[in-house]
């Protein structure tokens, strides 16, 4: 318990260091763009691929499980829409984001730490925490919501193609189901979730990378730790946000 609290305290001190940039902000612009390319563009294709199949499978399995003749077909599309917007896209993609981007951040910073590159930045008079972490956090907060918004769209398209061409639902029913009973707050709720998840994944992964000591074995270990702790943080915050905002 004490170890957990120490870790938490150390994480909050790390967060403070990120947001105390001592260097001119001009140097961050280019770094943020570079990170947006890594975080956003390089994950785009695989994100969309996963979303497509996530939508397809959800439609087919919902249809398979709804055997009651009193339940209308359009419910399949409504179920897909609600799960995609509120849960599937932000949360499942968050776990994937932690696996791909979070582990990448932890490994990169961990390697920089053990090869004294972070010390080199410090001796040059650069706020290394801010210089290395802030662009990654900002890029994640910008890119992840965009990726999730697109993911929701692709998920719905995937569901449509699988449902309509699989003979599960008619196009008219699908369209009606997507529009039916839509709660507008779902979208800002999803947006808030994506921002919180992006912040947690990027800061936890960078924190882990920044605090590694030892060699290659430890870097591998913290990369795994970064992913597992990010996933736990996503699930906990998902529950808390649902409690607070819904």
């Amino acid at each position: 318990m004490i170890k957990f609290l120490q870790g938490l305290g150390s994480y909050f001190l790390f967060l403070r260091d990120i947001f105390v940039p001592m260097d001119s902000f001009r140097i961050y612009g280019r770094l943020i763009l570079d990170e947006c390319y890594i975080v956003g563009c390089k994950t785009f294709f695989v994100f969309m691929l996963i979303s497509f199949f996530m939508g397809s499978v959800t439609v087919l399995q919902t249809a398979y499980n709804i055997s009651n003749p009193f339940v209308k077909d359009y419910v399949i599309a409504t179920v897909l829409r609600d799960t995609a917007v509120v849960e599937l896209a932000p949360m499942i993609m968050g776990i994937f984001f932690a696996g791909k981007i979070g582990s990448n951040m932890a490994t990169e910073l961990g390697t920089m730490k053990i090869s004294e590159q972070i010390d080199a930045l410090k001796t040059m008079g650069i706020n290394a925490t801010s210089y290395l972490v802030l662009p990654r956090v900002i890029a994640s907060i910008i890119s992840y919501p965009i990726l999730v918004a697109l993911s929701i769209g692709v998920c719905i398209v995937g569901g449509y193609l699988a449902g309509v061409y699989g003979g599960v639902i008619s196009p008219a029913d699908y369209e009606y189901g997507i529009r039916n009973g839509f709660i507008p707050f779902s979208l800002p709720f999803a947006l808030i979730k994506t921002i919180v998840f992006a912040f947690l994944i990027s800061t936890i992964s960078c924190y882990k990378g920044f605090n590694v000591s030892g060699g290659a074995f430890e870097v591998g270990k913290i990369s795994t730790e970064a992913v597992t702790k990010s996933c736990v943080a996503i699930l906990c915050s998902d529950y808390l946000l649902a409690e607070l905002l819904l």
């Binding site: 090869s115 004294e116 590159q117 010390d119 080199a120 001796t123 040059m124």
Partner: peptide
């Protein structure tokens, strides 16, 4: 202060044992 340390460090050059070149 952190500001002073930053200022002094900007006048420091360091050759690390592991070189610390950015790969």
């Amino acid at each position: 202060t952190e500001r002073l340390r930053q200022k002094i460090r900007q006048k420091v050059g360091m050759l690390f044992q592991n070189l610390a070149l950015f790969d």
